[in-house]
Nucleic acid binder design. Structure first.
Lengths: 225, 225
DNA sequence: TTCTTGCTTTTTGAATGCAAAAAGTTATGA
DNA sequence: TCATAACTTTTTGCATTCAAAAAGCAAGAA
């Protein structure tokens, strides 16, 4: 076992805390507080903060510490197309190397997912959905691609998760997944690339709409106080 | 001016040293030596090392320090397709937002580049070539895309630069650039996306061949000694 | 000679300490 | 009352120090 160094450990811990929504976007993250929370000293913590900043999860202000990166509509517009291109590429590569067994695994996940959709189990749906996309990425056997994708996905993860999308979009997303599975089964690279890209574009729209509503409700709740 | 913190400064310094070929791939980089070379203390240097490792320019071995990341054929096969997808996406987006002035700038660079090609000025050719690709990326107005691209490009930069490719490939590359300029002038997004992707694929092949030859000559020179 | 084994040196990992910058607070004057 | 200035506290940036792990080395046994 390659025992991870403390600094690496801290990086994943903070990353998971951000993913878990333990911080508000834009919030300051004092070193001291994090040190106590994770019971580590400042040196490895600071190393971790620098890494997370280079990943885009934190923003560093010289002499003023770190802040949790804000997710904005502009952000989403920048990141989603890139993810679309990467997943599209992943789909193409996957078509040329995926095994029948791997497709069967994805098919199983797909039916699990549609079951969750029918039962309106949003959390479970999300989980299996992510698993399907990961399977396609991993089928490329390109670790750099997976890493690049996950890095981008991490930055918008919270916004994506919180976008409790409307029923009609949910139905549409499931329909898109039918096409994804279909293209993959036929190993139709260009069709898969196309539908994955569209799928991401639509997701982007949904998340952006949700983000807009969130921002609007925040403003109104503040005004109400 | 946002005065960069020392650690940021160190990151760019080391990055540039790697780009300048001051290190051999796989070489160990003792902290002490770098500290003296850059005349900084270990704390900010170590922060910089962690960041460069997360960028993939260095590889960290627990308790054994940092090494310069090796460029391998597998690496190139992983990275180039991703760069192809990103540049392809950049081309598409660029077509929809690039101004006539920006196209003129690129055209000017293009003719500069072909002049260098005619005069067999490889270094100058490379420089202008890079500038053209950067212009296309920047025309997207998507900083995340530029950053992601540059991060990948950085990892293979040395190998790419050293791939003093053969004359026929050079001629072919220039021909591809004619098509790039042509598609961009017409704002033909799908044609531009296509040719950029092909261009990167061909470049990948060239760099891989060069890397293979390099490795072979290293082995033979070792055997000769 | 070659392979262990134990010791020394070097290098890395992490904690502490110190200085400078920012933030917060109080007091004074208009 | 409000604004400004001086002072205090907190926080950040970096250097130094200490501890642990790895690497290097020498002596002894097969």
């Amino acid at each position: 076992m390659t025992q991870a160094s403390l600094h690496d450990e801290i990086v994943s811990q903070i990353r998971n805390m951000i993913f878990a929504g333990e911080f508000v976007g834009g919030q300051r993250v004092p070193e001291k507080q994090l040190c106590e929370q994770l019971s580590v000293s400042r040196t490895p913590l600071r190393e971790a903060i620098k890494v997370l900043a280079s990943e885009g999860l934190l923003v560093l202000l010289p002499n003023r510490g770190a802040r949790i990166a804000q997710i904005t509509a502009e952000n989403l517009d920048e990141i989603f197309p890139i993810m679309g291109a990467l997943e599209s590429l992943a789909g193409e590569i996957a078509c040329s190397r995926i095994t029948d067994d791997e497709i069967d695994e994805i098919r199983a996940l797909h039916f699990q997912m549609t079951a969750h959709h029918k039962r309106r189990e949003l959390n479970e749906y999300f989980k299996v959905n992510q698993a399907i996309h990961m399977k396609i990425l991993e089928a490329t056997n390109n670790k750099t691609l997976v890493t690049a994708y996950l890095s981008l996905a991490g930055r918008i993860r919270l916004a994506r998760y919180r976008a409790n999308f409307a029923q009609d979009r949910w139905d549409q997303a499931v329909a898109e997944h039918e096409k994804i599975l279909d293209s993959l089964s036929k190993r139709d690279a260009s069709a898969l690339a196309q539908i994955l890209r569209t799928h991401l574009e639509n997701t982007c729209q949904t998340v952006k709409t949700a983000l807009g509503k969130e921002a609007a409700s925040e403003i109104s709740s503040r005004a109400g106080k």
